[in-house]
Design a protein around this nucleic acid. Structure first.
Length: 206
DNA sequence: CACTCGATGTTCT
DNA sequence: GAACATCGAGTGG
């Protein structure tokens, strides 16, 4: 017999979203990832965060790593939808992308910010005891907090240990803006950044 | 707040 | 040799 308890409900990481989710228009996937939970299960513990900011990178888009053909670095982008593409930027940070569209197309969604949902203590330890607001409010901050790096490159976001949960997304108003950090000749003016505009965990305010 | 700048190493021209 | 889908410390209002 279940007795009444005052403890909060246990954290439920759900199950990985299936491949079909990613095998669609990239701007649609970028928007529909908003409000969903990114989960990393490790022996050290689970970290998870609600995705609040994404960017789309498209075929024929000069900002897209795959735009000038396949290379060793961008090879994961040409893989199956749901392939994980992690790359090293500025020699010291990692960025997490999820490949969209059928194999061979070369489009992906960059995860730019999440709102911590589980494992906050672990995140703080990895980030150097930062305040909550500084844990995951940027593409390289969240990979640091969630221990995501080149080990995950070429991995599959539809399986453990790193996945997006199938739990129903948190809903909220979506803002569309230009992307962050691109040089002027790389499609800096394209409206391909998507944010949950009421989130306090964006990499930059909308 | 806003803004500048250095870190650091791989990739691309 | 330059650029890079960034971050954080430092400076000056």
């Amino acid at each position: 017999m279940e007795t009444q308890s005052n403890s909060p409900p246990e954290f439920d990481p759900g199950k990985p979203l299936s491949r079909d989710f990613y095998d669609r228009d990239t701007t649609l996937v970028a928007q529909e990832l908003l409000g969903r939970m990114l989960v990393h299960r490790e022996a050290e513990g689970i970290t998870a965060g609600i995705i609040v900011e994404t960017e789309a990178y498209l075929q024929g888009d000069p900002g897209c790593h795959a735009a000038r053909g396949q290379t060793e670095r961008n090879a994961p982008m040409f893989g199956l939808p749901g392939t994980i593409y992690v790359y090293l930027i500025y020699g010291m940070h990692h960025c997490l992308n999820i490949v969209t569209q059928p194999e061979g197309i070369g489009e992906a969604v960059l995860i730019r910010a999440v709102e911590p949902a589980c494992g906050q203590e672990l995140m703080q330890r990895r980030r150097g005891c930062k305040h909550m607001q500084e844990l995951t409010t940027g593409p390289a901050k969240l990979t640091d907090a969630m221990n995501i790096d080149l080990r995950h490159n070429f991995g599959d976001i539809t399986t453990n240990p790193l996945y997006v949960s199938n739990q129903p997304p948190i809903k909220g108003p979506v803002a569309t803006t230009t992307r962050i950090g691109l040089s002027p000749d790389r499609g800096a003016d394209l409206p391909l950044r998507y944010c949950l505009s009421n989130s306090a965990y964006l990499s930059r305010p909308v």
